[in-house]
Amino acid sequence: MIDILNEYWKAYLFSDGTRWSGLVVTLWLLAISVAIGFVMAIPLAVARVSSNKWVSRPVWLYTYVFRGTPLYVQLLLIYTGIYSLSFVRSTSLLDAFFRDGMHCAILAFALNTCAYTTEIFAGAIRATAHGEVEAARAYGMSKFTQFRRIILPSALRRALPGYSNEVILMLHCTSVAFTATVPDLLKVARDVNSATYQSFEAFGLAALLYLTVSFALVWAFRQAERRWLAFQRPLGK
């Protein structure tokens, strides 16, 4: 245990000597895919609740497909599947993008988390109190202003508990990134395992680090809920 810590602590946390590795890569994957997913999910959620079927059905199909298949299969499709197509290899821009495992992992993760986030946000938008929207319309707000001033601020707050689950699940999902040769935390643990044959210690260290980040996220979201969902806190005490 001590010898693994002495020799590999840097690789587990931030660098394997030549490039970023371990925890830093995992956190980067999480941050960028969750950020892209969040930004795309807001317009998609608005489209998902639209009464126009031509707008809402395609979004439904997207979330249905991405929520109905495993993330690992989606990553394989993007990393090994798309790159095996000959026209991708012959187009230099596409070739450069899909050759890199990191790009593929980020694309797959962002698409996946965006699908779940869209449904979470859409659910929250649907649950907006009818009177609030009516009041906004009575003030003569346009559709856009209604969403910007009334619906989205309250819906995103109410989505917070569901969204926090999604972010923590996404942290766990980033562990499949090593199958696309991304040097994330689990990749380091696997390398240490094959170098030392101390499986329990090698994977246990990674598990401990994932656990720490999970707890940190739970704590951070609890703070966020205290701030933005203060009105929902039970009275008394």
């Binding site: 942290l171 766990h172 999902c173 980033t174 562990s175 499949v176 689990l186 643990a189 696997r190 395992n193 044959y197 499986s199 329990f200 994977f203 246990g204 990674a206 598990a207 994932y210 656990l211 999970s214 707890f215």
Partner: peptide
């Protein structure tokens, strides 16, 4: 503990450790 650790990490941990 279990809900804080990714499935895949636990799977690899147990797969190799149980054998050892």
């Amino acid at each position: 503990l279990i809900r804080g650790i990714p499935d895949l990490v636990l799977m690899l941990l147990l797969f190799y450790s149980i054998q050892i």
